[in-house]
Design a protein around this nucleic acid. Structure first.
Lengths: 134, 134
DNA sequence: CATTTAATTAGAATTATTCCAAACAACTTG
DNA sequence: CAAGTTGTTTGGAATAATTCTAATTAAATG
């Protein structure tokens, strides 16, 4: 069953526009973790300003997450259908998604350390292929 | 026992310069998580170019970590004397350090998910004061 | 279908960060 | 410890990712 993009937008009180359908649809169907510029290259009919505006909105409602800390210094974006974290190959710059970890203990630790209600988290792991000649 | 800054630099094969002593000394002794600009305001005798150069070097050798994902969109820097993670109050933008969490299971999960040797990690939790009127 | 409200757009503006090439300072070696 | 080598510092210019602006257009509502 494919993801219902219009429903996703409506669920978050976002108007269903051609641009949002195209952009969110693109993120949903691609495993890449593109920058705004990369999305614009794939969807040139959407202006770059709208790419940024739309990404901001999608991040705001939690449908998309920003990945920072990549070697290129740019923001990368990722559809956030299910909670997950990121693993970056620092040699190839590939970004992988993973969800094989229960974050609850971490969130609990954060709460205990600060007394804050933890509302969100970003986890990036950095690694290299062990087979790469050193 | 105070931290021996020259030894820290030497341990990582970095020349011990006045600028590095001042900058690393500043980070070691302050709980703030400043941007390059903020450091420059505190240490105006060091040029901004050198602030950036030095921070880059310190990050490279692992003495300092970059905190990304703050609301101001700028990079914040933190002395990385002991492994820790960050918790950001999204209302006040305060950044807290915490180390009350064993990251080994997470690193192991990352390895299992990708086959990569995990060499580093960044964890940021985001939260709000539960007492804040909603 | 008329109205309201919000989204889109091109292009200008901003600004954090990087780059540059010259001057200088730290370490090394004899 | 003098001279040399190497790496560091610097002011300022350059870059480029992102944000802003004000005018146009499209989506939702009833």
């Amino acid at each position: 069953m494919a993801i219902d993009i219009p429903a996703l937008l409506q669920k978050h009180s976002l108007k269903v526009t051609q641009q949002r359908l195209a952009l969110l649809g693109y993120l949903v169907t691609h495993e890449t973790h593109p920058t705004a510029e990369m999305i614009h290259a794939e969807l040139p009919e959407i202006s770059l300003a709208t790419i940024y505006n739309t990404l901001d909105k999608l991040v705001e409602v939690g449908l998309v997450v920003i990945i920072e800390g990549t070697a290129d210094g740019k923001r990368h974006y990722d559809f956030y259908g299910e909670p997950h974290y990121h693993i970056i190959n620092t040699k190839t710059q590939e970004i992988f998604d993973a969800n094989n970890f229960d974050v609850q203990p971490l969130l609990q630790a954060g709460r205990e350390a600060t007394g804050l209600d933890i509302t969100d988290y970003h986890i990036e792991l950095y690694g290299v292929d062990p087979d790469d000649a050193k």
